[in-house]
Design a protein around this nucleic acid. Structure first.
Lengths: 165, 165
DNA sequence: GCTTGATATTTTAAGCTTGAAACTTTTTCC
DNA sequence: GGAAAAAGTTTCAAGCTTAAAATATCAAGC
């Protein structure tokens, strides 16, 4: 599979162009700006954090609750991490935690009604912020960007990090 | 400037489409995957971290050194944060810190020769990793993605976070 | 039934990140 | 020259993140 082989210099293995690095830096910059902005607004206006929002969002999609392990896999974070975030949500009364009736090792986490309300509020604000941040792009450009990010996703999936054979 | 005004529902101000949210989630996903991969490889193969690499990169561009404040502004992180990262680099012998001769409040941080060598090694690996991760995209697509991210950058700059007037 | 290994979770140590408070030095303004 | 304000930096508390070690439970095989 050789869609577009990287063009290399004759010397020392450095790529001839800086396209990739510039692209990565711009991608990182855009994401960082958006993420910091969302984080800041959550903190300032709702006394909330992005990781807690992520957990609430995952639980909102699972009315019957999720195990800690399922949460960890869904959010792509370590299980130890989930433990801390869920404990904070427990203190705030936004989630309930029960031991699974079928597996004594597993805990099942569930939104409380307060958690549902809280998430609904956060979610609406979050949606509006994203819309506003992207409002300066035409729908055509947004869709084109979405598609190209799909191509990037594929490229990332193809890169295994192995040394060249 | 009205490239393509957002299409809104008649009711409750919610946008009619989910283009923006889907785009944001995909953007975040791609960046997170790349960032975690780089972070992991730095840790596994070089006993380094991404924040330290960022500081080294900024200092590498400033042969005469930078103040802590300049570093903080260049990297878009808090000054307290820079303090911690620079202290770690000091312990490793990669940077030197001196009080500014013209301003007793300011510290000037500079790479040591070891720091320069270390950064050169990290930088080359970093470059190769990025190239490999993006190698699955055609040059045309990479450039198109770069341009669209430029449009996103502009859109972000236009969003002030103010309430609608 | 009991041992062995696998699985689910928590704990711990180390590091990054921020915002606010504290400290030092410089600048400004009488 | 001296007081007050401003600026550069560090310290501190709180929270997120990970990997690795420790706990507890389940499952398989004998």
């Amino acid at each position: 599979m050789t869609g577009a082989p990287a063009i290399r210099e004759k010397h020392d293995g450095a790529l001839a162009d800086r396209t990739s690095i510039r692209l990565w830096l711009r991608l990182l910059s855009c994401t960082t700006v958006m993420e910091k902005r969302i984080r800041r607004r959550f903190a300032d206006r709702y006394d909330a954090t992005l990781p807690r929002f992520d957990v609430l969002a995952a639980l909102d999609r699972a009315p019957d609750g999720m195990t800690m392990g399922a949460l960890s896999r869904a959010l792509l974070v370590s299980s130890g991490n989930v433990t801390g975030v869920v404990q904070a949500l427990l203190r705030d009364g936004y989630v309930l935690m029960t031991t699974s009736p079928t597996d004594g090792r597993a805990s099942i986490v569930r939104l409380t009604p307060e958690g549902q309300d809280h998430f609904a509020e956060l979610s609406e604000a979050h949606h509006e912020w994203i819309d506003a941040m992207l409002a300066g792009m035409s729908r055509h450009d947004r869709e084109a960007l979405y598609e190209l990010l799909g191509a990037l996703k594929l490229s990332l999936a193809a890169d295994t990090g192995e040394e060249k054979p």
